[in-house]
Design a protein around this nucleic acid. Structure first.
Lengths: 245, 245
DNA sequence: GTCAATGTGTTGTCCTGACATCCGGCGGGC
DNA sequence: GCCCGCCGGATGTCAGGACAACACATTGAC
């Protein structure tokens, strides 16, 4: 067992552990490493790649976190059996659709500065009634309505514009503004569509909707965005992978 | 800023980094560390606790993964703002309810060895039509119906019994059998209840249901369980926290 | 007064080394 | 032939050091 050919470029600014992780990930997705295959031991890998064991371990840990491989003390490291599906991670719907080969488009229904409703204020950690940006969008995939998304954002972090929202996802805008979103708390549920919602989404009243509220924080621990979204359950599902350390 | 008092016990079999992480986690949950508070620097912590920097880093990384704190290079480490909610992680409904102070109970509707349906076989990585255990349970919280859960498990890993399933969650049984579940891929959606489902759950036909399918793998990368569950959307929602490394 | 350069402190990355713990196979004893 | 103990090999944990990259405050020049 020598595994796939992995080369590291020490002159690259990309961290070595990340280079290794990416190449293993690619090898798994390609099928060069089949489900159930054993990886070389950490010491062998370190020797073969000219890296230290901690660096190799960091790379492998990265793949464990992504749910691609599993480790067993005293035994070794194996590729997870079964097909691998990409996790949604922390991306916007826009990016998700683009990656799935579907054409995303957006109709901005509302973009205004409003007094923050109490439940949203609690989630964002701002005073109730203080001014925040409120955004409501109807999202399409391949021209078909898919979701109605509402977002509230503090005024002092980024100013949204209609133009930007037409062509890019919200998270791309946040990133471009220098905000680094690091995590989020999400609550996923379901409920029946109201008449107004049904009309917008092309469903019947009472049709099941998938609901998600999300509060995202950045690398300063600030809450940067709170969203309340509804998806057509007939056209959309969320995928989540969980991996323990 | 000296932070909460942390003591490590070197004679304990619990890893040092885990002891540190747990005590920080407790301090945050207790409120000793308020949202936005800065932690001591890694070097200060290492010095104060008598540990090396890698060990302290490992503890902090653990908390970052749980979404409790954020790090910023060149600046420091802060507690995430806003209230912290526990993530569901990789536990069964039984454990979730018990932790939330609600009384879980279970009615086993079916427990039998069956020929594996094709879609389930694909998820479990076994041959279609091969024999697997099939389990169908009606779950209650405080005596009220909450969910109908179906699971399929290979025959060779664990043999389920009626008695065990009445009192314990499926995952507790798997753990007791020596299986270490390490991760899962989940798909979360919604749909309308059929007449039969509605009757079991005490809902009306067409009522929105939250659906989740989950395929869980163990520390050998084997798929050990595939589940297809439906929850009353009026009584249940899933919480997920996402944290990037 | 404004802006750029510098300095300090922090996390990010990477290295070497060591021992602990666990698993599984091998071989010897029975 | 079966069982038990040993042992090799793997990951898990921990130490200590070094330099890089980055953010922010301070200082200096203009």
């Amino acid at each position: 067992m020598t595994g796939p050919e992995i080369v590291v470029d020490r002159s690259s600014p990309v961290p070595l552990y990340f280079q290794v992780a990416e190449q293993f990930s690619a090898a798994i997705q390609r099928g060069d490493l089949a489900p159930g295959d054993r990886l070389d031991s950490e010491l062998q890998l370190a020797d073969r790649l000219g890296l230290s064991r901690p660096t190799v371990r960091q790379a492998i840990q990265h793949l464990v976190d992504k749910g691609l491989i599993v480790r067993r003390r005293g035994v070794g490291t194996q590729v997870v059996r079964g097909e691998v599906r990409r996790a949604v991670e922390l991306t916007s719907l826009h990016d998700d659709l683009a990656r799935a080969g579907r054409q995303p488009s957006t109709s901005v229904l509302e973009l205004a500065t409003v007094a923050c409703p109490a439940p949203v204020a609690a989630a964002l950690g701002v005073a109730a009634g203080s001014e925040v940006q409120h955004l409501r969008r109807l999202r399409f995939a391949d021209g078909e309505p898919l979701a109605v998304m509402q977002n509230w954002l503090p005024l002092d972090l980024v100013r949204l514009t209609l133009d930007g929202l037409q062509s890019r996802g919200l998270y791309a805008i946040l990133r471009a503004a220098g905000l680094r979103v690091r995590g989020a708390q999400q609550r996923i549920g379901a409920r029946a569509a109201t008449a107004a919602e049904a009309q917008m989404l092309g469903e019947r009243r009472g049709a099941p909707l998938l609901t998600m509220t999300r509060t995202a924080y950045d690398d300063q621990g600030r809450y940067v965005e709170h969203g309340a979204h509804i998806y057509r359950a007939s056209r959309y599902a969320l995928e989540v992978t969980v991996a323990e350390r």
